[in-house]
């Protein structure tokens, strides 16, 4: 399978958007989230010296089904090198 010559895969639109997006200035950018999306808990961000980079769990969980892009094109091989695919060691279910 290593001999196959294939076009190098292109990054997806979502990957490119993540790369080029600028950081929101949470305190200065007045954002209107689409209807049904909760803003970051204002109590967390308006209090005291916080730089506006605190987010509550309910705000963060809203991203779970919205952003699913792999971090990079070589993610699968990187994952295999670090976390492994589970095949080389016994999974909990198959412990002797």
């Amino acid at each position: 399978e290593t001999n196959k010559s294939v076009e190098p895969p292109q990054p997806t639109a979502g990957m490119q958007a993540l790369k080029s997006a600028r950081f929101l200035q949470v305190k200065n950018d007045a954002i209107n989230y689409p209807e049904g999306i909760k803003s970051p808990n204002p109590a967390l961000n308006l209090g005291g010296k916080s730089k506006g980079r605190q987010y509550d769990k309910d705000f963060l969980l809203q991203f779970q089904d919205v952003f699913k892009e792999k971090p990079s094109m070589d993610w699968d091989s990187k994952l295999k090198e670090t976390v492994g695919d589970g095949s080389e060691s016994a999974r909990p279910q198959s412990a002797r």
């Binding site: 958007a17 950018d29 954002i31 989230y33």
Partner: peptide, 25 residues
């Protein structure tokens, strides 16, 4: 404000073409 805001697209507006992301501390 509203005209300025129209340039800001979060991942909730368009997951393929957003132009701002949420920074962590």
């Amino acid at each position: 404000n509203s005209s300025a805001n129209s340039d800001i697209r979060t991942v909730f507006d368009d997951p393929d073409n957003f132009n701002v992301k949420h920074p962590l501390m």
